Simulated scan of single mutants.
Amino acid sequence: MIIVKTLEEIELMRESALVVSKTLGMLAKEVKPGVSSLYLDKLAEEFIRDHGAVPGFLGLYDFPNTLCMSPNAQVVHGIPNDTPFAEGDIISIDCGAVKNGYYGDHAYTFAIGEIAPEVEKLLKITKESLYVGIRELKVGKRVGDVGYAIQEYCEAHGYGVVRELVGHGLGKTMHEDPEMPNYGRRGRGKKFVEGMTVAIEPMINLGTRRIEQLDDGWTILTADRKPSAHFEHDVAIVNGKPELLSTFAYIYDALVIESDEEDEFRAKELVL
């Protein structure tokens, strides 16, 4: 069942999402060769608590950490460890936080130093596909419209679109209806309505779409061990169209990147 939110609830969810956004922005300055994912995990937990929230992933389904940290061929759900990052790695950082009883949950894939051109293109196309999908989140459209748009955009570049892992509704629990696959057929699936809140998150592989799971019961990686990228935003339907609750602006501010990619999805200017 889709849980529709009031405008007041959506504003509370925005606060939760922005805690995650600020956490990712803080981490952006720390992602560099020689740093470990476990070190970043500890920074994130402290930052989230200092901002009046609690980590959304820690203990959820018995997950042991604050962040899902998935480097290179890992798709999602990687467990932080002491292995230092190396020049040329990529790392997906997926973060959740709970504030005012609502979840924020989004992700960004960072390049560590100079990365291979084909991997840089993978990150670019995956992030672009996120916004391609968000544009379809309008009253009267359906889940399949979002999935189809993402799938078509990524497969046109020869990439594998993961099927087994999907986006989801978001609210007082981490996973609400509807599931939001990154593949699909236009006009199929649940219809979008005013007040819906979802997490859209393309998980796109450089090679095969097929995946495997490690014995830790969490870590998902590509079957061919080629790199995978993951970007995620929290989005609400307001006045019939998509409005971002999360932002990458704090990341871009930290990395001195100029971008207008989010402008069309904002009802008002974001103040950093």
Rank of each mutant, 00 (worst) to 15 (best):
residue 127 K to I: 07
residue 2 I to P: 01
residue 27 L to K: 07
residue 123 L to I: 08
residue 140 G to H: 11
residue 210 R to V: 01
residue 21 S to R: 02
residue 125 I to P: 03
residue 176 E to W: 13
residue 123 L to G: 11
residue 174 M to T: 09
residue 141 K to G: 11
residue 16 S to F: 07
residue 135 R to A: 13
residue 215 D to M: 05
residue 84 P to M: 11
residue 188 R to K: 06
residue 210 R to C: 04
residue 41 D to L: 04
residue 92 S to W: 01
residue 229 A to D: 11
residue 147 G to F: 03
residue 25 G to D: 04
residue 48 I to P: 02
residue 185 R to I: 08
residue 213 Q to C: 14
residue 25 G to M: 01
residue 113 G to M: 00
residue 134 I to A: 15
residue 101 G to S: 14
residue 217 G to V: 07
residue 19 V to I: 09
residue 228 S to M: 00
residue 107 A to D: 14
residue 121 K to D: 13
residue 75 V to P: 05
residue 41 D to S: 10
residue 82 D to K: 08
residue 18 L to H: 15
residue 144 G to S: 11
residue 68 C to I: 08
residue 8 E to W: 07
residue 173 T to C: 01
residue 266 R to H: 03
residue 25 G to R: 01
residue 187 G to F: 08
residue 36 S to N: 04
residue 258 E to G: 10
residue 41 D to M: 12
residue 154 C to E: 14
residue 206 L to H: 00
residue 13 M to W: 04
residue 259 S to T: 12
residue 157 H to M: 03
residue 266 R to S: 02
residue 158 G to Y: 08
residue 35 V to P: 08
residue 133 G to A: 12
residue 124 K to V: 05
residue 31 V to Y: 06
residue 161 V to M: 05
residue 167 G to C: 07
residue 202 P to K: 07
residue 36 S to Q: 00
residue 227 P to A: 05
residue 66 T to G: 12
residue 165 L to E: 07
residue 165 L to R: 06
residue 113 G to Y: 04
residue 234 D to M: 06
residue 245 L to S: 10
residue 263 D to K: 12
residue 190 K to S: 08
residue 181 P to H: 14
residue 184 G to Q: 11
residue 214 L to W: 12
residue 149 A to H: 04
residue 218 W to F: 13
residue 263 D to H: 03
residue 221 L to V: 04
residue 259 S to A: 14
